[in-house]
Design a protein around this nucleic acid. Structure first.
Lengths: 239, 239
DNA sequence: CGAAGCATTGAAGTGCGTCAACAATCGTGG
DNA sequence: CCACGATTGTTGACGCACTTCAATGCTTCG
């Protein structure tokens, strides 16, 4: 289970056996959390960071009127709130979108890790910077892409991110979000999300059932989305 | 000039005299860059990071059709591409929005700094995490706020960010963006930006001239924006 | 003074939102 | 295993926030 996280790191940087041990050592326990639970609430003081071992998480922000925006999605192997290690509290909630398994890294251990292995500090820093790059791509989507292109883009992004952790079968992956949650990612209403999905189906680009997304024509989908995975930084670098 | 940057850091963490010296030591030269220049191009390999000593910068992303989204604004004292230190290339361009003065930090010096002072690695990591928090707030704006509220929110955010660096006089600050650039921040057209500004003026909330923004009723503006500066993390923490 | 960029305005169009009803599916308890 | 309420997905009619297009006036600066 933990291997997915290391695989994600190793997609971007070299990790030695010793470094791997040091990273594993940061995690004390692992917990199961049911669907639709709030894991971290905005403003709470933090002294641990959570690694998502399995399942789906969202970072959500709300307006007074009840409108909700999901600012990020997380899948197996992602750190949910590594940024909380330096921020000490979050500006958003972290909620489960499915049953989840979570690894817990106390901040004091991350402190020791980053003191003893400055390179691993940079590696983890890199991972939060990749999160930020995804935020920027979402900003572009929300600001300038149409509903159709925005949705297509999200499906392409998740395909690539899930593939790193071997969570893709063929051109299909588990997709636990309902249309309301999808609308909260895309800045749309559920009604318009529904119509947009139907248009994607009608064009033969995707199939979306209760719990599973299948990409029927990846080239065409990426075309609609103007998808370029460069922002996911899937190449190795020296640190 | 460099003091503004340190002031920004010290708003969030303690920086000792020795640490200050170490940080200053990272910067080799300083450069002047004229208005509307591209400082860093998306995809270029990076070996320096740029500190904005004076002026305004934008991070921009484009679609094939020519639509442009500004994903972040930077003012005096902000690092423009500190995230480039770990990413090694950017997923966006960095452009000047005014005449600028830039400090240059070669990555090898940042490497030495983060090796020798793990705490300063965490401090700089924190700063990129605050950038990401601002990205998330923009995501919320683009996804869920109306044009009016979105614009009001941006004006409130910049007011606070500029005040840290003493770039605010009364309730007024220099604002070099034209309506096109403003529309690129807000995900709107220039026509609608123009009409929204007029509505803000009509309600007596702001005054916006060629080069200057004046907030006439900050409480009301923050109300329209549902502005809460918590996401800017303006409190001190241990690292 | 003249050209180029920028701000402003009006009229008409559209992508997406709102409201409201209904259908399908799911989860639960009997 | 079925019944039934609750949740989720689907559809239609209509409305609006924002866009598009295009013209005009206003700055600014060589």
């Amino acid at each position: 289970v933990f291997g997915v996280h290391l695989k994600k790191l190793r997609k971007r940087v070299h990790i030695s056996a010793e470094e791997e041990r040091a990273i594993r050592n940061c995690f004390s326990e692992s917990r199961k959390v049911p669907d639709h639970h709030v894991l971290v609430r905005s403003g709470d003081e933090l002294n641990v960071s959570l690694l998502l071992l399995d399942g789906w998480l969202a970072r959500t922000k709300d307006l007074a009127g009840g409108e909700r925006q999901i600012t990020a999605l997380h899948v197996s192997g992602d750190f949910a709130d590594l940024h909380g290690f330096t921020l000490k509290r979050l500006d958003h909630d972290v909620c489960t979108l499915s049953d989840c398994t979570i690894g817990v890294a106390p901040h004091e251990r991350l402190m020791e890790l980053t003191n003893k292995y400055p390179r691993l500090a940079r590696v983890h820093w890199l991972m939060t910077n990749i999160d930020a790059a995804i935020h920027r791509e979402w900003t572009l989507s929300l600001g300038r892409r149409t509903a159709m292109s925005r949705m297509a883009h999200l499906f392409c992004e998740l395909y690539i991110r899930l593939r790193i952790g071997d969570r893709v079968e063929g051109d299909s992956y588990r997709f636990p979000l309902n249309q309301r949650e999808l609308s909260e990612c895309l800045g749309l209403t559920t009604v318009h999300v529904n119509r947009t999905i139907q248009e994607l189906r009608r064009r033969g680009l995707v199939e979306l059932t209760r719990d599973r997304l299948t990409i029927l024509d990846r080239d065409a989908l990426e075309g609609v989305a103007e998808f370029d995975p460069a922002y996911l930084y899937l190449d190795k670098r020296e640190l």
